Structure formats: C-alpha cells, structure tokens
Simulated assay, not measured.
Amino acid sequence: MKKRVEECQLKDIELLQKVSIETFNDTFKDQNSPENMEAYLLKAYNLNQLVKELKNESSMFYFIYDEANIAGYLKINVNEAQSEQMSHDRLEVERIYIRKEFQGKGLGKYLIEKAIMTATDLNKKKIWLGVWEENKKAIRFYHKIGFLQTGTHSFYMGDDEQIDLIMMKVLN
C-alpha cells in the first residue's frame, strides 16, 4: 500500500466537506438522532465554517491517501485554535477520521504520527484530543498508542450534551 499525507488547500474545500460529512456520519449516525446529526453537520461542516477553519493559521488539515484514493483526514490545532483552553506547549488533534473502506490499514496511526511530527517540529510538549466516551474502539486505540485520560469536556451533538474524554500524550 502506498500512503501519503498532503495538506488541504482552499481549492480542496468541497472535497474536505464531502469527506468530513461522510466520515462523521458513518462514525456516529447509529448512536444519535437524525435531527441532532443534521444540526451538527450543518453547523460544523458548512462551507463558510470550513473556509474559516482552513484559513486559520493555527489550524492545519491533511488528507491521507491510500494509493490515489483519499482515505481520510486529520485536523490539528495549536495556540488559540484549540477547542479547549490549553497552554501553548500543546497540540490538539481535533478531527481524525478514516473512511470505512480504508479502516484497519493503519492509516489512523499514520495520521497520529503526522500530528506528533508536527507537534515536535513546533516544539510542543504534549498532544491531546477529545474522544466521545461511547467510542470504545477509538479509546482503546488511543490508550494503545500512549494517550492517557486527563479530564473530560462537553460536546454538543445538536441539543444532546455528550461527554468527551480528554486524552493526552507527553512527547519525548
């Protein structure tokens, strides 16, 4: 398998939107009401919102490719772009999604490695993320690669308040 990571550009915005909606929907639609899913997708993945996030110099989006196919994406944040107030020595993995047909190929781990490399290049000491407490598969994955739970925060799926575990990894 030939995999590669490329930074998303403004010209990729519609593709980013498509992959974002597809992967989020595939991951969470079975555990949430259609109304809450639709409300969240409209808020988080409308083109104006994605353009704003993509133009933020403290956020970076990357596509991961398997051969010539976009297999998923990663969004990382530093400084004020982090979704929680964190010190400037941290990098947040805000979104990491792999399309269903590409799961189980190690691409998620590859994207985490990209995030760690970026954090190291930016002299960050820790990398963190929020993961829904009901997403047991993801929680196991993050534990396996050295993330530890350090807290929780609320995440709103439409009008449904859900709890995300804050997980952190100290970098060497």
Rank of each mutant, 00 (worst) to 15 (best):
V19F: 08
T152G: 12
A119H: 03
M37V: 06
D66W: 10
L16W: 01
I127S: 10
I64D: 03
M167W: 04
F24K: 02
V93M: 14
T150Q: 01
V5G: 03
K125V: 09
V5W: 00
G146Q: 07
L50A: 09
E6V: 12
K137D: 02
I64F: 08
Q85I: 15
Y142V: 07
Q82H: 05
E6W: 01
A71Q: 00
E80T: 12
V170M: 07
K29S: 11
Y45D: 01
L16P: 01
E134T: 09
E133P: 10
M60T: 15
L16Y: 05
V51A: 14
S20Y: 01
W132L: 06
N56G: 02
A71T: 02
Q17R: 12
F147I: 03
D160H: 13
E35K: 13
L171H: 10
Y142R: 07
E94T: 03
G130E: 01
G146A: 04
D160Q: 15
L129H: 04
I13S: 01
L91V: 02
M86A: 15
Q17D: 01
I76F: 08
E53T: 00
L50S: 12
L111I: 01
L10M: 07
K136S: 11
F102M: 07
D26Y: 02
K3A: 10
S59H: 08
L122E: 00
D164S: 11
E53S: 01
N69G: 05
Y110R: 13
E101C: 06
R90F: 08
Q17G: 10
Y142N: 14
Q49K: 13
L16H: 09
Y73P: 02
A71D: 06
M168D: 14
E53V: 05
L10G: 00
E22M: 03
L122M: 09
Y97V: 00
L16F: 03
N48F: 04
V51M: 14
D121C: 09
D66V: 06
K137L: 05
E92T: 04
Y73I: 00
W132A: 01
F141M: 09
V170H: 09
F141S: 04
F28D: 06
E133G: 11
N79G: 10
W128D: 07
G130V: 08
K125A: 12
K43H: 13
K11V: 06
T152A: 11
D160M: 12
D30S: 11
N172V: 15
N56V: 00
N79V: 08
Q17N: 07
I145S: 14
I21N: 06
Q49E: 11
E161V: 15
I166N: 07
K18C: 09
K125R: 14
A119C: 11
P34T: 08
W132S: 02
E53M: 05
K3F: 02
Q31P: 04
K137I: 06
